[in-house]
Computed example of a mutant assay.
Amino acid sequence: MTQAPTLLQQIRALVRQRQGIPFNDYMQLCLYAPGLGYYMRPRRRIGAQGDFFTSSSVHRLFGRLIARQLQQMAELIDGPFTLVEQGAGEGHLALDILDALQQSWPDLYERITYRLIEISPDNRDRQAALLQTHSTRVSWCGEQELAPFRGCFLSNELLDAFPVAVVEKRQGQLLEVYVVEQQDRLVEQLRPARPEVVQHFARQGLQPAEGCRAEAALGVSCWLEGVAARLQQGFVLTIDYGYPAAELYAPFRRQGTLLCYQRHQASDNPYQQPGEQDITAHVDFSLLQLEGERLGLETLYFERQYRFLMALGFIEELLELQRQACDAQQACALRLTLKNLILPDGGMGDTFKVLIQGKNVGQPALLCQRPIRAISLAATAGDGC
């Protein structure tokens, strides 16, 4: 008996006991059931041998550019600077940030405390092994154990893995997807949406169009409340794929954004091999900003990833890396790799967004706000790949 069928048995037992469960409960089990969920078992998830790529797995430059923005943020805060990262995967972004700080901004490196919030025992072990050279700067804690701090709360591809309720609008009524068992199979059943789901959309002033599906990450507001309560002064830096609400719930998005990933193959069927595939949904950035304002987190910056990276020196850093390349072929391969981070038209550079919120920091002119026109045209010359 393998672990995946054991998880399936657990899900079926709960479905029978409760005569159906909301989709977000099903997704919670698939991803986070202790010892059985996708993120809770030892497995390779990120990279060529895993199920998907992240920006930090493309190249260390991603972390270096974020470190540059963090360095400026730290200048605005006196005393110790705490960087909290939640959902750090295998720890590659943390390693790249700490390496960059140690090399280029040693004073900040000596000031910084890097706190990792990680619920996956497997990921914690991988992070500890990878970050061994920075052990004096790194520590781990649970979400509820995080003490009040001044600094920055960082997440990269965290919120897309929050369990979501799935709804569909029919004849003007908001219906919710429940998972039920039928002829020994898990299938969907539409029921009137729960009050908390209706309230989620009411806060936005938006609902999916008639005949369309959409997702609601019900846990995001509670999560942001916890972050805002612990952040005394500083920033919340959120990087993920998603859209503002008006685009997320647009009529052309008839099937919503729910997708599954296994071995770099996308699927829209979350009911096959529970626990063996990642399940994600695009982030509602309007909700983050709306709830943030309510909680004292002021929106300072919201942009597509390619503009964020370009403003922080992507082109200049690329040219420097090219100069260090051994030959023209290696330089060309480097350019092709790094272009993945800024590709528009549905690529990482366009689909991924960056949101920076601030608390008790005023309205600083952030480095990432540098306009594209400020980048020297000479810097882009000679790109033949």
Rank of each mutant, 00 (worst) to 15 (best):
A147W: 10
P163W: 05
P163Y: 06
R194G: 00
L154D: 07
Q173E: 15
A202V: 08
R185F: 10
E188Q: 14
A161P: 05
R150Q: 15
Q173H: 15
V179C: 15
V197E: 01
V167I: 07
P195R: 06
V164A: 13
Q207I: 11
P195L: 10
R150M: 04
L190A: 10
L174Y: 00
F149I: 10
R170M: 08
V179W: 00
G172K: 07
L175M: 13
P148N: 08
Q182F: 12
Q183S: 14
Q183A: 15
H200M: 03
P148F: 09
G172F: 08
C152M: 06
V167K: 01
A165L: 04
R194F: 01
P192D: 00
E181V: 03
L158P: 04
D160C: 07
V177S: 12
C152L: 05
Q199K: 09
E181D: 12
A161E: 05
K169F: 08
D184T: 13
R185T: 11
Q173S: 10
Y178F: 15
E168L: 10
L186C: 07
A209C: 14
Q171P: 03
R150D: 08
E157M: 08
P192G: 03
Y178C: 02
L174N: 02
E176G: 00
P208F: 07
E188F: 03
K169H: 09
D184H: 15
V179F: 00
V187D: 13
Q199L: 09
F201C: 08
P192E: 03
V179I: 14
V197M: 00
C152T: 11
Q189E: 15
V167E: 03
V187W: 12
D160F: 09
Q204D: 05
V167P: 01
K169Y: 07
E181S: 12
G151W: 07
Q183R: 14
E176Q: 13
E181N: 11
